[in-house]
């Protein structure tokens, strides 16, 4: 069928969305939490942050492929143009950040001369040679893009609930439910 006429997201898209929603929210909380404590939590949060970030990087690539293969349901025809544009812009920003954040984190650690250890004995290759200037720039970007991503997720959540509770136009349901019977 033509993806544009689909009423809901495909099952793989929905599964990936909700799995990644949990992972990314966890990641953001882990990230702000681990740099805000000197307690033992710091250590295990850092150890969780790296493999979780790489898993998100892998999943977002799969997700983009799924989106390309299955497409997305069309937005309601009566949606005001500014909301339509905001929806498209914010979604592409979400994808850009999901892709950029793990790559920045990995490159940043390489630039700082840190080994990127996912698990005991599993160390990722360095993406760049050590450079304090690059490290510093990426470290700054990693924090501020993470906060931007969190803000964007709040906006996304508010918009989804607006569709679900106020407009009740089927947009929220397209990500929560399977295809309806005609």
């Amino acid at each position: 069928m033509n993806p544009r006429t689909a009423v809901t997201f495909s099952l793989p898209a929905r599964l990936l969305h909700w799995l990644m929603a949990i992972m990314i929210l966890t990641m953001l909380f882990v990230g702000v939490g681990m740099v805000a404590t000197v307690s033992e939590r710091h250590v295990w949060l850092v150890q969780l942050h790296k493999p979780l970030g790489i898993a998100i990087l892998a999943l977002v690539i799969v997700r983009l492929l799924v989106r390309w293969r299955y497409g997305t349901p069309a937005l309601p025809a009566d949606l005001p143009p500014w909301q339509r544009h905001s929806a498209h812009l914010s979604h592409w920003m979400l994808y850009a950040l999901m892709l950029a954040m793990p790559l920045i984190g990995w490159t940043m650690l390489s630039a700082g001369g840190y080994p990127v250890t996912l698990f005991a004995g599993v160390t990722l290759p360095d993406l760049v040679s050590p450079s304090p200037t690059l490290y510093s720039a990426l470290r700054f970007a990693h924090t501020w893009l993470a906060l931007s991503l969190f803000a964007l997720i709040l906006l996304h959540l508010a918009a989804a609930l607006y569709h679900g509770l106020i407009r009740r136009d089927g947009v929220l349901a397209s990500m929560t439910k399977g295809r309806r019977k005609p």
């Binding site: 702000v32 805000a36 404590t37 000197v38 709040l154 959540l157 508010a158 609930l161 106020i166």
Partner: peptide, 27 residues
């Protein structure tokens, strides 16, 4: 309801990040 959901999530985030917890020993 929408406002509350967003506010609760934002507050939890701010708490974990130490912004609402001035007594915490942070790096």
């Amino acid at each position: 309801v929408i406002g509350l959901v967003v506010a609760i999530l934002a507050t939890a985030f701010a708490y974990v990040g130490g912004w609402l917890d001035p007594g915490r020993l942070t790096p």
